[in-house]
Simulated assay, not measured.
Amino acid sequence: MSQSVNEFFDRLWGNYIEITPSAKKIHQVLGDGSDIINDHVAFRTFNLPGINLSALASFFTDMGYQEKGQYEFTSKKLNAKHFEHVDSTLPKVFMSELKLELCSDALNNIVNRLVAQLDRSLLGDSRFLYSGAHWQVSYQDYLALLEESEYAAWMAAFGYRANHFTVSVNHLKQFKTLQDVNRVLKDNGFSLNQSGGEIKGSSEVMLEQSSTMADKHIVKFSDGERAIPGCFYEFAYRYPQADGRLYQGFVEASADKIFESTHSHTGR
């Protein structure tokens, strides 16, 4: 069953706010009744056949997206790409994958055991991208993954869904700067990611970003339920280039710290 690109993002958003209720509250705080423009949506995956970055990106190229940038996060063992639609009103897509060949045998054994439970017949439908986890995972395995890769642990617990949506600060009517947005968020009780500074980036790199810390969500592990960090909300302010158009790319040093929005509030 094929979906229109607008239907896809509507359903993706619905799935996202089910486990990220703070995003709906932030809409009320920042939107003042107006629509909020989404700058980009991010996805995570493993670099395994059928579910790697290239395979999942085909869903977006089929919807009219084009690859625009490649990124590498050495310390986190990740590759990433970003995609833009020919219709510039649609959100950009940022997709990353964990390079399992750089990870331990123990991590690979757990991940391969999980992915082996996946029904491959589901991979032909874009709804797969918000279908969640297709495997049973124990809390002990989650903790084992967490010791080596928070990214892998998050994937094991949450599977396929938007890791985060992103508010385009440039399009907010009531705010002029990312600093103003952050101040209002904190005044309303939201916790912001402080890794690398509250604001990552600057006018020099044409992009400023901040993000909330992920909402805690109850996950049903095979050996019991636990509340763990799920998804978060990001905020991006883009600066105009020499031609007057807003910069549309991503900054590796900043994105590296945004990944840490799914770490626990205690720093784990």
Rank of each mutant, 00 (worst) to 15 (best):
A227T: 07
K25W: 01
K186N: 13
Q179G: 12
K81D: 13
N163G: 01
A57E: 07
Y151W: 00
A255S: 06
E72D: 15
G69N: 12
M95Q: 15
N112F: 04
W154H: 01
S149P: 05
M206Q: 13
H217F: 13
Y142Q: 00
D180F: 11
K216E: 11
L185K: 07
G196I: 09
A242V: 14
W13N: 07
G249V: 14
S88G: 14
Q136G: 15
V137S: 02
G244E: 08
V169S: 06
V205G: 02
R268Y: 12
V219K: 02
R11E: 13
T20A: 13
Q66R: 14
S121E: 12
N79V: 13
Y71Q: 06
N193T: 03
D119F: 10
I258L: 06
A153N: 04
N188R: 06
F165T: 11
E260T: 02
F259Y: 00
E7C: 04
A106S: 09
Q136Y: 14
I110R: 00
E72V: 09
L100R: 03
N47I: 09
S104H: 00
S138N: 04
A116L: 14
N79Q: 13
A57R: 08
L56Y: 03
F9M: 15
L107N: 01
N6H: 12
N108E: 04
N163E: 11
A153F: 00
R238F: 10
I17G: 01
Y16L: 02
H85T: 09
V41Y: 07
N163Q: 04
A227K: 07
L143I: 05
R113G: 02
D39P: 08
G50S: 05
W154C: 00
F250L: 09
E97P: 04
F232I: 09
A227H: 05
G132H: 07
K200R: 02
I36C: 00
T20M: 06
Y139C: 15
A236W: 14
V137N: 07
D62H: 11
D180N: 14
D141F: 01
K220I: 15
V115K: 07
Y151S: 00
Y130I: 02
G14T: 12
I258W: 06
A236Q: 12
A153G: 09
V167D: 03
G50Q: 10
L185E: 06
S203V: 08
L78T: 05
A144C: 08
G69H: 03
I19W: 12
S4N: 11
K24I: 15
P91H: 05
I218E: 14
Y142W: 03
L53G: 07
L78S: 04
H82E: 15
R268N: 10
L56C: 02
N163V: 09
M206K: 13
I26L: 04
D105T: 06
